[in-house]
Design a protein around this nucleic acid. Structure first.
Lengths: 242, 242
DNA sequence: GAGGATCCATGCGTGGATCCTG
DNA sequence: CAGGATCCACGCATGGATCCTC
């Protein structure tokens, strides 16, 4: 008699769980996939992947980001520097209003609160992630309905990168000098640093002004909405504020 | 009208979830509690705490250990060195056959695969944990029914500790020399080192024979059943093999 | 508008151990 | 028998972001 189907161990009875989308072969493959999602509602993509995205937005903050990752074949939540490591491309979903305009800042990556004295722009994680970004707008209409917009594969122009680098050095320099508590979200023209934690009680070790060890809230780097608005309007423009 | 009962936020609708048992005041308090559990079935203790311990043993390996921890007021799954930090006492549940004899080895703690060259018995985590242990036997009868046996609060005699220290130095010395892959479970009379991982694919960094970085499976220290059998029979005896 | 605060999912490490072939 | 392999629960960190008051 026939042996049991050995492939059955890959199916765990999760009705609705679809097979993972394979990684894209190259940038044009990736961009093609992203374009094919344009116009689709978030709900329809979720159904196709066997996921559920509902409930108040406050309780589903990161869901759409993860959904688009999976729909495009990004490596799932790994420690990899980029969402598509072989392409060195970062994916960012960005909520936009009915006219396609970003209203929120965009998280880039965690900020170093210790070892900041050894952080340089050229070697920084911020630069690595921003060197190639696939922007996928999520259009939210007046009824709260969410739909994928036209994707943009972007790299900073030399002029744009100079400003980002300046902001980065400004922020990291103050941290390295022990003034981390003096760095708030007002520092930086397009790149800023803000708290990034589950709640206000989270603490991480850092270096204080007198070289002593202090406990402070974890921070993250964010792109101001002013900057992402400019990119989506005109990818090579040097926005106001430069 | 009366304000809502503010204590209600501590109850999350978990029918059966009992209040946590407070930490013991001292060793005699702890030992008294353990003695009061003797003779109780695992199921009856679980019911009392609002827990469920059932299913095949392969799928519930650590459940009884956690159950007894909670029943005795141990600090829950923290990074603390001991289960009862203020008493510096470690709790070990140990499965025994109907005659009270241990048949399995006992996990002690993770083994250092990196930095092993700086590990000394006097400062070791193994020694710290074994310096004071509350042994709680779990008697498994022929029907698979599990019942708590008579607890034993134990410290190694000087002669016992000498052997443990020798085994430790033997194992750690070989690791420090870069021979970690040469250390298998056959090394050590009462203390041994064996793999300790979720599955065979887990890897951790270590130092190879030529000082290079290698990836190896994580290890743990275990007490051989031969040794724990001796302790439960006669806590101060120097077992065979010394 | 935007700075500061917060929310969910998931991965990984640790601690609780016992399983399971040869 | 026992060496080598494995299993579950849970906490914490990370990565996905948006919320929510001034």
């Amino acid at each position: 008699m026939a042996p049991p189907d050995s492939s059955s161990r890959f199916f765990h009875g999760l009705a609705g769980a679809a097979a993972p989308v394979p990684p894209p072969h190259d940038e044009s493959d990736l961009l093609g996939r992203a374009r094919s999602l344009a116009g689709c509602s978030v709900e329809s993509i979720a159904r196709r992947l066997g996921m559920v995205v509902d409930g108040h937005a406050s309780r589903t903050k990161g869901k759409v980001g993860v959904l688009i990752e999976r729909a495009l074949g990004a490596s799932a939540g790994s420690q990899a520097t980029w969402d598509f490591p072989s392409l060195r491309v970062e994916l960012k979903t960005i909520p936009v209003d009915p006219r396609g305009v970003p209203r929120e800042s965009t998280f880039v990556c965690a900020a170093p609160v210790i070892d900041a004295d050894r952080a340089e722009w050229a070697m920084s994680w911020v630069r690595a992630k921003l060197s190639r970004v696939l922007w996928v707008p999520i259009e939210i209409d007046v009824n709260g309905m969410r739909r994928v917009g036209n994707p943009l594969l972007w790299s900073p122009t030399a002029a744009q990168e100079r400003v980002l680098a300046d902001d980065f050095e400004d922020i990291v320099g103050r941290i390295g000098a022990g003034d981390i508590e003096a760095v708030n979200a007002r520092v930086g023209r397009w790149l800023q640093m803000r708290p990034k934690a589950a709640h206000g009680g989270v603490r991480r070790l850092a270096i204080g002004g007198d070289g002593e060890i202090i406990a402070t809230i974890p921070r993250g780097f964010y792109l101001r909405a002013r900057f992402t608005r400019s990119i989506l309007r005109d990818p090579v423009a040097l926005p106001e504020g430069a």
